[in-house]
């Protein structure tokens, strides 16, 4: 396993993305962050706290579980089914600029599901996408607005994002997987 991003680098990356969000939206009026479970949620919270430090204002933050919107639910003949967790969006998304946050952008199917899930909560003015790592291999026409790091990968590699809130440590790793890997 090779380290792509250490704790210090991750911190700088998120600070840079927070500034890009402020720049692109000319402030943070009417912005809300929504993290995609599991690891998008702590990343969204960190962005919110950086935005608070930078602008002095609170940014509404929510968590989105996309399990019930996945397109591969019935296809996994083996392996455990994803466990459904709570979606917590304690604010109206109507007319807001929603910044969707996820850890890794790969096929784009998670984000497709997240867009469907989000739109069931209302009609946001815009939806923008933050990802910590973009590893390529898109299967759908989806593109991130803010990217922490672009990493060219093969299908035989896996990206592991570890966050201190969940895994006790901040780092992004890349692993070679032996044998067949879809």
């Amino acid at each position: 396993m090779t380290v792509l991003m250490d704790s210090e680098r991750m911190g700088r990356t998120l600070t840079r993305i927070a500034h890009e969000i402020v720049e692109r939206n000319r402030g943070i009026d009417n912005i809300a962050l929504v993290g995609v479970r599991t690891r998008g949620v702590p990343i969204a919270r960190r962005l919110a706290s950086i935005l608070r430090a930078v602008t002095g204002h609170e940014v509404a933050t929510g968590a989105l579980d996309i399990t019930l919107y996945r397109d591969d639910l019935m296809k996994t003949a083996v392996g455990p089914q994803p466990i459904v967790r709570r979606t917590e969006i304690p604010f109206s998304i109507d007319g807001r600029h929603i910044v969707l946050v996820d850890d890794v952008l790969y096929t784009g199917r998670t984000i497709r599901a997240a867009l469907d899930a989000l739109i069931d909560f209302g009609r946001p003015s815009t939806i923008q996408l933050v990802v910590l790592v973009d590893r390529g291999h898109r299967e759908l026409p989806i593109k991130a607005d803010y990217v922490g790091k672009n990493v060219p990968t093969s299908h035989r590699e896996t990206i592991h994002v570890r966050l201190s809130e969940i895994d006790g440590q901040d780092e992004v790793l890349i692993e070679q997987v032996e044998g067949e890997q879809a």
């Binding site: 579980d65 399990t67 019930l68 919107y69 639910l73 459904v84 967790r85 709570r86 979606t87 917590e88 469907d116 899930a117 069931d120 909560f121 209302g122």
Partner: peptide
């Protein structure tokens, strides 16, 4: 998690 679905404005998921 399912209980939260019933509290949404659109009380339906495509699962």
């Amino acid at each position: 998690a399912m209980k939260e679905v019933s509290s949404r404005p659109i009380k339906k998921v495509p699962a």
